[in-house]
Design a protein around this nucleic acid. Structure first.
Lengths: 239, 239
DNA sequence: CAGTGGTCTAGACCACCCT
DNA sequence: GGGTGGTCTAGACCACTGC
């Protein structure tokens, strides 16, 4: 058994729902039936179904059963910011990443406050502009603690820094907090983005924590007003 | 046993963490110890701990234990829009709700599209302006299917419509989807809000579904740019 | 190595829904 | 009353961390 049993059940159903093999409204087999079908226990089936529920694939009603929800109206991803890559992929449009800068320097007071470190601590700073359909509409400014991320390069910044950190460096990300607000655009925004004459810009601040609860990354993602969209999907928690 | 055992454990710990009795970094007793202490099974303890984990109270590391996280840096609520009432409460400032309109009328094409109903369907429309510190900064436009919410009044609209629906009408809300974007402000925005000379406005569209997956409510919450803030807290899901 | 959390089992009783 | 999901139990084995 390479994969956890409950993940196997989860994957089979999430794939079938995504691909449209299971239509919205379809009633899933009961938990007991699923347990028998997968030769497992009901609690393991419930683990899979609860995952499907939390991710917005299905819907459970006590006494009635579990039913497939309509994902097509959910706009991917079900929750969270539509990232640059996802946005480009979804739109199927030409997109480019322009690395403006990749340097190591002392944090300085502003970044030090965000990362909760002394201002003289060394950090990696990566500034990237995101271009979609010929327009630079997102400015990503990433800051990493250099004592945790020892090396970065322009090549890495052009690809997925995220994959580099997780796969190459083996950093285990535990959780992240996002703060979204709208602020006056700066001179830098106008210089690096095609801002038209928008006076404001959407700022998404992202604080990323490792498994040992260390805050090691702060990202400021600055989006042109007219191209910003955020989706939030919330299950009702009864307590 | 009035309350579920796992909720009891969850509540005791979430309260202690909130109140500061348990400081960040504190190691919780092991799952086996907790099971013994609460005279319950380990799986039940795990249910409580997983809730605490998902809500951002604690942090679990395989082989080491569970640890209290620093909630103070999380800004309440841990995830979601800072609602009008929470905002006012947190700021401890004077706030008012001004009900502009409470009427029943046919949906019309735009609202019909949002609610996925025929345009001639009757709906309740409630328009409210939210005033904080003497400034009207949020415009809430709620639309309810009249075949589900049979009656509304200005008195109800002045209080919490939400409580009326859940407690009085017994409507069971299952899930909701939010879409956040920034759009040009309308003439209505300027008429009903103190918009200064902002040309744009943050629009939060909220689609609310009942337990039977019926979309029964659509809310458009229009926030003045400079007063908008959204918090998103995400656990990393390993798969 | 002992201790920890992650997965899994094979039962049980309950609350709820529909007919 | 029969079927469903929600809770709970008392075990078991595993993978991972620390000493």
């Amino acid at each position: 058994m390479r994969e956890n049993k409950y993940l196997q059940i989860y994957n089979e159903y999430s794939n079938q729902i995504h691909s449209g093999q299971l239509l919205p409204g379809t009633k899933l087999p009961s938990e007991s039936e699923l347990a028998e079908a997968y030769t497992t226990s009901r609690e393991t089936v419930r683990k899979a179904l609860n995952l499907l529920f939390r991710e917005g694939y299905i819907h459970k009603i006590k006494g009635r059963g579990s039913f497939v929800l309509d994902m097509t109206r959910m706009d991917f991803p079900v929750t969270g910011l539509i990232s640059f890559k996802e946005m480009a992929d979804t739109l199927g449009t030409a997109s480019r990443t322009l690395v403006e800068r990749t340097i190591q320097e002392p944090a300085g007071s502003a970044i030090a406050r965000h990362l909760q470190i002394p201002p003289e601590t060394l950090i990696w700073k990566v500034v990237r502009a995101r271009e979609i359909e010929g327009e630079r509409i997102i400015l990503d400014k990433d800051y990493f603690r250099a004592d945790i991320v020892s090396f970065l390069s322009e090549e890495i910044a052009e690809g997925s820094i995220y994959e580099y950190l997780e796969l190459e460096l083996g950093l285990k990300i535990s959780y992240a907090k996002k703060l979204i607000s709208v602020e006056p655009s700066t001179e830098e925004d106008h210089r690096l983005l095609d801002l038209k004459n928008f006076t404001h810009i959407v700022v998404v601040r992202n604080y990323v924590y490792l498994e040992n609860t260390v805050l090691y990354q702060y990202t400021e993602s600055r989006h042109r007003l007219d191209k910003f969209q955020f989706v939030d999907f919330a299950r009702r928690v009864r307590r």
